[in-house]
C-alpha cells in the first residue's frame, strides 16, 4: 500500500491477522449509487445543514435590521414577503424540518437503535413524509396568521 499524503497515513491499519488494511474514508461522491435510502438521506442531511446555515444568516439579517430601525426592517420584510423571499423561506422551512427529523434519526442511531436495514428504510421514509407534513403545517399556520 502506498501512502499518498499525510491523511492517507492515518488510514493505514492492520487486521487481527496482521495483514494491512486501508480504512474507509468519507463516502466517495462518484463511485457509489447515491440514490439509495442510506446515502441519499445522509448527503441530504449535510446539504440541508449547509442550507440552514444560510437560513441562520437570514435570521441575523432580520434581527440586526429590527435593531437598526423601521427602514432597515421594512426592507427585510419586503424581501421576505416578495416572490423570491417566499420561495426561499419555503425551501428553508423544508430544509429545517428535514435536518431536524434526520438529526433525530441520527440521535436514535447514536443511542444504538435502528441500525437494521428494514428499520433504516422505515425511519428514512418517516423522515421524508414528516418533512412534507411539517413543512405544509408550518406554511398553513403562517398563511392563517397573515
Amino acid at each position: 500500500m502506498s501512502i499518498q499524503d499525510a491523511r492517507e497515513a492515518t488510514m493505514l491499519g492492520r487486521r487481527t491477522d496482521g495483514t494491512p488494511v486501508r480504512r474507509p474514508l468519507s463516502p466517495h461522491l462518484q463511485v457509489y449509487d447515491m440514490m439509495q435510502m442510506s446515502s441519499a438521506i445522509s448527503i441530504t442531511h449535510r446539504a440541508t445543514g449547509i442550507i440552514w446555515t444560510g437560513g441562520a444568516a437570514v435570521m441575523v439579517w432580520w434581527l440586526v435590521a429590527a435593531a437598526s430601525g423601521p427602514e432597515a426592517f421594512d426592507r427585510v420584510q419586503w424581501f421576505l414577503g416578495s416572490f423570491l423571499g417566499i420561495i426561499m423561506l419555503m425551501g428553508l422551512t423544508a430544509a429545517a424540518w428535514f435536518h431536524t427529523l434526520s438529526g433525530l434519526r441520527h440521535l436514535v442511531w447514536d443511542a444504538g437503535h435502528g441500525y437494521d436495514i428494514p428499520t433504516m428504510y422505515k425511519s428514512g421514509h418517516a423522515v421524508l413524509i414528516g418533512t412534507a407534513v411539517l413543512t405544509a403545517l408550518t406554511w398553513l399556520a403562517l398563511l392563517l396568521s397573515w
Binding site: 420584510q77 414577503g81 406554511w139 399556520a141 398563511l143 397573515w146
Partner: peptide, 11 residues
Amino acid sequence: VALATSAGMTH
C-alpha cells in the same frame, strides 16, 4: 412556531 404564527410583523 413563533415566526410562523406572527407573519408580517410590523417593526
